[in-house]
Computed example of a mutant assay.
Amino acid sequence: MKRIHRILLNLFPIYALLTIGCFSSCRTAHIPEKQETAISGNILIVFYDAETGKSDLLSAAKKYGSRIIYSYKNFNGIAITLPSDKGVEESIRYYQRVKGVLSVTPDRNLELNETKTPIK
């Protein structure tokens, strides 16, 4: 028993150094302090009710002068351009009144403000 105790006491400094070395090499993930968003141009993202479908929305877009640039496959939404003579707020109000539309938001670019060196 004394021999095991003596071996453990001799190995303790080694285990302590290994533990300290492991913890000192760990880094936590950097969480950005601030996110900045900017409207990415003249594009709106429109989500619609699956039961109603998108036929009314597509007709309204054509009538309004918008062009469909993308139709999402994993969820019920489309990306459309704004007509050159219409503003963002005016277009949002127009599409919100279309039957089956759930939400209308401008497409946004998201920029992360990196203040520290990223983890490698």
Rank of each mutant, 00 (worst) to 15 (best):
V104G: 06
E51I: 10
L58K: 13
T37W: 02
K54H: 09
A61F: 01
L9F: 09
T115V: 05
T105L: 11
I43K: 12
I92D: 03
K63D: 13
E36G: 01
F47W: 00
V101F: 03
C26T: 08
K34E: 15
K99R: 15
T19D: 00
G53R: 09
R67P: 00
R27D: 06
T115R: 13
L18S: 11
L112R: 06
R6Q: 13
E90F: 01
Y95A: 10
S103F: 08
K63M: 06
P118Q: 05
L58C: 01
Q35N: 06
S25T: 13
K34F: 05
E51T: 09
L9E: 08
D49C: 04
E33T: 09
L18T: 07
P83S: 09
I31K: 14
F47I: 00
M1D: 07
I4A: 14
V98P: 05
E51S: 10
Y64D: 08
H5V: 12
S91L: 05
P32W: 01
A79L: 06
A61S: 14
K86I: 01
Q96W: 00
Y15I: 14
P13G: 10
Y72K: 11
L58Q: 11
F47S: 08
R67I: 09
L58A: 06
F12W: 05
H5R: 13
R108F: 07
M1G: 15
P118I: 03
S66V: 01
